[in-house]
Design a binder for these strands. Structure first.
Lengths: 356, 356
DNA sequence: GTGAAAGCGCTAACAG
DNA sequence: CTGTTAGCGCTTTCAC
């Protein structure tokens, strides 16, 4: 009886199952990993023993022996950002289907947290790394690339022969945003940036500049407000906007949050959107469909991005492809909603006056 | 030269460091885990060898040997929900400080995904489990509690002697919400539920009922709309609301998303918030401060909840406490903003008329 | 204060 | 088809 007690407490090992089934540990192992290599009769015998004992293999031992962890590290700048959360969903679904686990490296916008995840990669706790950061995390002396582990860059591209990129066409879309506003008659623009050091920001701003040039405009035709990818950046931009005499009529925000922030703030001052100012966002977060007015923005294929990125990484891990082969750029979709409209002509009042 | 090449590719093991330092592997191990047990001279010798070789211990081998994984599993219903994301931040910060890693079990609202995480716990890949689910995940025959691992329930309580709860005072706050509206003169209520099967929903609705009773009202004085914790539930509730002849004047939504959803929809029909209907949300997501009007809601101490929950789990893992000792309930804060106001008296029009 | 040696629990040659 | 055996890389008694 005291033995039975022990059972409940002590972990069941493969040797226990082997004894119970009257076979060797090797056979048990085979049944569990490659059933076809074993006679059906033995198979059933073993499975019965597994069931009766409630045996579950110790995965740490498996990992040590096989040198595969079946885990992937995903490094993200900030988890509370819905953009990353959605990408993560795609990643998770793809990895789960191949029974890979996911270890989350949340930097929470603090670079000092990188060290921990560099060590994680270097100490072989994962089989591959997904980077949503736009750069390869480093720990003073050591960089994550030193691990020799397969790495895939998502979200923001990384210039490195060894690292395939799976990104969205930020630059093209940003350029299209300007064209869209320009087609509505806007000639004076505002640009609300994201975190200036972020590669995503750099790409989007570059696209914005491309658009400005394509519209036949110059540096003098727009205003740039800086700040991180958050609501309050838009609010701060609004304060500046409100103080201006010659206000832009078309505003491009590098993320939906800051677009929402500026709209909220200027509306409080009785400035009408889109009549007085048009605003276009970027990302297509779910919330953008619940603002007032609903936000015109570019939808990123985030979930798909997650799936594709994870798929590329798995292929890399399995040796099914070489890193050089892949640079995927997914297109964005313009969601034309209610914060953008034709420019109200500058000389509106004087026109009216002269018409009298 | 070909040897040097090898170096870069082949993993450095503890034996390599030992050889380099001219000591045994045991000594290297001691230096790394408990430096005081070693002569300073030896210590420096070893550290130098570690530095020169770039050695990082293989954590899988450590885990197998020490039987501690230094990982915690966090099971959450859905990662894209900002509430869980914020709790996770707290959890992550707390665990990181104790150099524990975090494995995320994202159910993505699909119960069939539980199985995977049950196995994860049973196969000893983690030292403890944090449950944001309100129930103990199970896999047909096996439940996660069978692992004997320390478990802490957060967000939603779990009735189990072995599982400490770290939750917020949902029920009390829901009750207060009704009192708040009642004090503003509202006597006819609407309740927008969350996922009906969720324990959080059950608690909040119970609190709502408490409040109704405390206000001297009955089942006839409110309307209940059901749906999951998402925007569209609020939109659906709005459709029903719009069809009613005798509309509620005070609406309590079990989450901010559905509050935002209903406000958005009814405003589109020229119904004024809060003049025609007051709406109070629940959770205090960041976004609630950027809606129009800004949403009155209860702020959950989410980050703190995460930290406290993780702390309790770590104490449990270290054997510093027993499960029975802990049931923590954190208070919520009412954020009184612009979607709530005094009821406009029913006989408003007739009053005006008689005043003429 | 340090080294030798015995495993942690599992898988994968290698024989048979 | 199945069993024997040798480790995966590390920590930790137990001697010295």
């Amino acid at each position: 009886m005291s033995r039975k007690r022990w059972r409940a407490v002590k972990e069941i090992r493969i040797a226990d199952v082997a004894r119970l089934a009257g076979v060797s540990t090797a056979t048990v192992s085979r049944v569990l990993s490659d059933p076809d290599k074993v006679r059906p009769k033995t198979h059933d015998l073993v499975m019965e023993a597994v069931r009766r004992s409630g045996y579950i293999p110790n995965s740490t031992a498996q990992k040590l022996r096989t040198r595969r962890t079946m885990n992937v590290l995903v490094v993200a700048p900030r988890l509370t950002n819905p953009v990353f959360a959605e990408i993560l969903r795609g990643v998770d679904d793809e990895l789960t289907e191949s029974s890979y686990g996911i270890i989350i490296g949340n930097l929470d916008n603090r670079r000092e947290r990188e060290a921990r995840y560099v060590d994680l990669a270097l100490s072989r706790q994962v089989d591959g790394v997904l980077l949503l950061t736009g750069y390869v995390p480093a720990n003073g002396t050591r960089s994550m690339s030193g691990s020799g582990l397969p790495i895939v860059a998502m979200c923001a591209a990384i210039q490195d022969q060894k690292i395939p990129n799976v990104v969205v066409q930020d630059r093209e879309a940003s350029s299209r945003a300007v064209a869209f506003l320009s087609d509505l008659g806007h000639r004076k623009f505002g640009y609300i940036s994201g975190t200036p050091s972020s590669i995503i920001e750099v790409e989007r701003f570059q696209g914005f500049l491309d658009g400005i040039a394509a519209a036949g405009l110059s540096d003098n035709d727009f205003m740039r407000w800086e700040g991180p990818f958050v609501f309050s950046t838009g609010v701060a931009a609004a304060e500046s906007f409100l103080r201006m005499k010659e206000r832009p009529t078309g505003i491009f925000a590098a993320c939906d949050e800051s677009a929402i922030g500026i709209i909220k703030r200027v509306r409080a001052e009785r400035i009408r959107v889109p009549q007085d100012v048009s605003v276009i966002g970027f990302d297509g977060i779910e919330f953008a469909d619940y603002t007032e007015p609903t936000l015109t923005t570019f939808r990123q294929p985030l979930y798909e991005l997650g799936r594709v990125g994870a798929d590329v990484l798995l292929k890399l891990i399995r040796g099914e492809m070489k890193a050089e082969d892949w640079n995927i750029r997914l297109p964005l979709t313009l969601l034309e909603r209610d914060t953008t409209g034709p420019v109200l002509h500058k000389d509106y009042k004087s026109l009216r006056r002269s018409a009298l």
